[in-house]
Amino acid sequence: MNTKFVPVMLTPFKVSGEVDYDCLTQLTEYYLKSGAQGLFANCLSSEMYELTEVERLQVVKHVVKVANGSVPVVATGTFEGSINEQAEFIKRMNDVGTQAVIIITGLMATQHEGEDVFNQRVFQLLNLTANIPVGLYECPVPYKRLLSPDQLKLFIDTGRVKYLKDTCLDLSQVKAKIRAGFGHDFGLYDAYMVNAVESLKAGAAGLSCIQGNYFPELISWLCKNYDNDELDTEVDKVMDFFVGNMDIMHNVYPISAKYCLQKQVINISTTVRAPGKTFTSDVKNQIDALYCKGLLLQKDLQLEVWP
């Protein structure tokens, strides 16, 4: 099966806080050179809630231009406002060249509203957006609203839902959701690194995890080799590396990821707009050590190593 690494893209900012489009070009090209077979722009890792409406569209349009048709680009298209307003923004996001526009599940209904309300609003949104391909994202913000396999199947059966970024962390649920998409043009992309290999073996379309913003080459390698019996030892090493360092990679993310990319080939500042993020000397030392471990692992796998 051709499994794909679809990075959840970072948004580079200048020290002044403006979007750094020159760096965004470099970053997009780096993802592609590292083996990405799709790009998820304007997502939580992109600090999408800290971007203006105009910036969201400009960032995605820039990524689409740089990718130049080499891989599909998906991007979030639902934010604040009524269903009608969200439908209009989905149309605008589609117009910049995305292959699918992503719906945030936590914005379709409040935590206190049931599946019936959620389903009604999603179907309403689909009706208002013509034949635009869409995806669903169980984004942790504003809250994580998980889909049941039966509920997901209702949407897949419309032929409109092509993509799910799954964050349920439950392998049995992931497998059931994959089965819900059998026979359809649909792919589940797991965000949870712990279940990565088992999800891929169960038929997940690929991985879309924050670890790809530290070492994209390693995630691409895993997507290619997870079921290669001759590389079982190496696959275990890659999994042990990522799972064993999950806490470090989540700490003050995405600053930590930007700093790690700095140490590779990307001229990216550690500036973020997300509130409450402080890059301390202790975190810096942890990322320095992580980078060295990742570098050794890449050399062990005979991957291209950046200076």
Rank of each mutant, 00 (worst) to 15 (best):
F5H: 10
L10N: 02
S16E: 11
V19P: 02
D22Y: 13
D22W: 07
Q26A: 15
T28H: 10
C43E: 01
S45Q: 14
S45E: 13
M48Q: 14
E53W: 15
E55A: 06
V59G: 13
H62S: 09
V64D: 09
K65G: 15
A67M: 00
N68Y: 01
P72C: 00
V74L: 03
T76E: 10
T78A: 02
G81C: 08
N84L: 12
E88I: 01
I90C: 05
R92Q: 13
N94V: 00
N94K: 08
I104C: 08
I104Q: 06
L107D: 03
L107T: 09
A109G: 05
A109T: 02
T110P: 06
E113M: 02
G114S: 15
V117H: 04
Q120V: 02
Q120R: 14
R121C: 05
V122Q: 04
N127R: 10
T129G: 08
T129A: 10
T129Y: 08
A130I: 02
A130L: 05
V134Q: 04
Y137C: 02
E138F: 04
V141I: 13
Y143H: 12
K144G: 13
L146V: 15
S148H: 08
D150N: 11
L152K: 05
L152F: 01
I156L: 02
G159S: 00
R160G: 08
K165Q: 03
T167I: 13
T167D: 12
V174T: 12
K177F: 04
R179F: 06
A180T: 05
G181V: 01
H184C: 04
H184T: 01
Y189Q: 07
A191I: 05
A191N: 08
M193E: 06
V194S: 07
N195K: 02
A202W: 03
G203K: 01
G206P: 07
G206S: 06
S208H: 07
C209N: 15
N213F: 03
E217Y: 11
L218T: 04
L231M: 15
D232W: 08
D232T: 13
V238Q: 03
V238N: 06
V238E: 01
M239Y: 05
F242D: 03
I248V: 14
H250L: 13
Q264P: 07
I268G: 04
T270L: 04
P275S: 13
G276H: 10
K277E: 10
T280K: 00
Q286M: 12
Y291C: 09
K293L: 12
G294M: 09
L295E: 12
L295G: 04
L297C: 05
Q298L: 06
E304R: 12
E304C: 11
